[in-house]
């Protein structure tokens, strides 16, 4: 334990990316988790006498056009955004890993057919694919989560397939095969754990892409529905008040940026870990 702490301490000192990533991600997480139990105001409570107020002690980030407290809404919105991003990556990485591992390991016809379909889906920018699925299943944050999850499957499947192909012919796998290890065990006990490095970085990148895609789609209005709002939806509501009340736009936007940036820095910091 003390060695881990020592390593962490040394790395934080020599690695500003790691420090910045830890601080930013930590702040966002604290804000989001606190928001589950407590927000200064009810995120949906309107107050006609407090419309479009600027930053003050009563309203740390001001109020919106319906007099709702923006800080409370940001706390709530970042929870939805994070939930969707985590769910998206979980579906994308989970399903993608299974498809990629099976096709890469067994090859043959299955691989050919799956890869054509994956290639075809890959040709779709994820935002477009999510739009198709949303237009089929309807709008709402759960639909958005599933759509984005499906949209993220191809990239994970491709990465895992490539890695499995690489590992398949390595000595230790050959060895395990000679010892009569079953295919299932081989894939999920011997091969998949060995690609965790590649997986970790893809998950980090995937998470950021998910936050950005969710924000974009919510901005278009196909995500969470009023009165609850994710950060992207808040931005699209706020856009018309940009000139009268810039803080309404800036705070939700800044939280999205910090969420992605914190994670990107963290990823960069981990890649420079010594």
């Amino acid at each position: 334990m003390s060695k881990v702490r020592k390593d962490l301490k040394r790395n934080i000192k020599s690695n500003p990316y790691l420090l910045a990533g830890l601080i930013i991600t930590g702040l966002i997480l604290i804000m989001t988790i606190v928001g589950i139990f407590w927000t200064p105001y009810e995120p949906t409570a309107m107050n006609a006498s407090e419309k479009l107020k600027g930053v003050s002690l009563r309203h740390l980030m001001g109020t919106d056009n319906m007099g709702r407290d923006i800080f409370s809404r940001v706390m709530y919105g970042s929870r939805i955004t994070l939930l969707i991003a985590i769910g998206t990556v979980a579906i994308g990485a989970g399903v993608g890993t299974i498809i990629g591992a099976l096709t890469g390991y067994f090859g043959g016809m299955l691989d050919e057919v799956m890869m054509r379909i994956i290639d075809a889906l890959f040709a779709f920018p994820s935002i477009l694919l999510a739009l198709v699925i949303v237009s089929v299943f309807g709008t709402g944050w759960i639909q958005l989560l599933v759509s984005l999850g499906i949209a993220f499957v191809p990239s994970f499947a491709r990465i895992v397939r490539g890695e499995v192909l690489r590992c398949k012919n390595m000595d230790y796998v050959e060895n395990a095969r000679l010892q009569g290890v079953s295919d299932f065990r081989m894939i999920f006990v011997h091969i998949v754990p060995n690609i965790k490095g590649v997986m970790a970085s893809s998950i980090m990148i995937g998470f950021n892409n998910a936050v950005l895609a969710e924000a974009g789609l919510s901005y278009l209005g196909v995500g969470s529905q009023p009165p609850y709002a994710s950060l992207g939806k808040m931005l699209s509501d706020a856009q018309q008040y940009m000139f009268t009340m810039p803080s309404y736009v800036l705070f939700p936007g800044a939280v999205i940026v910090l969420m992605v940036l914190g994670f990107a820095f963290l990823g960069e910091g981990i890649s420079r870990w010594k």
Partner: peptide
């Protein structure tokens, strides 16, 4: 930082 800004936010 730029990579962390969603295009619609930089648009705004």
């Amino acid at each position: 930082v730029i990579m962390a800004i969603p295009p619609f936010f930089s648009g705004i």
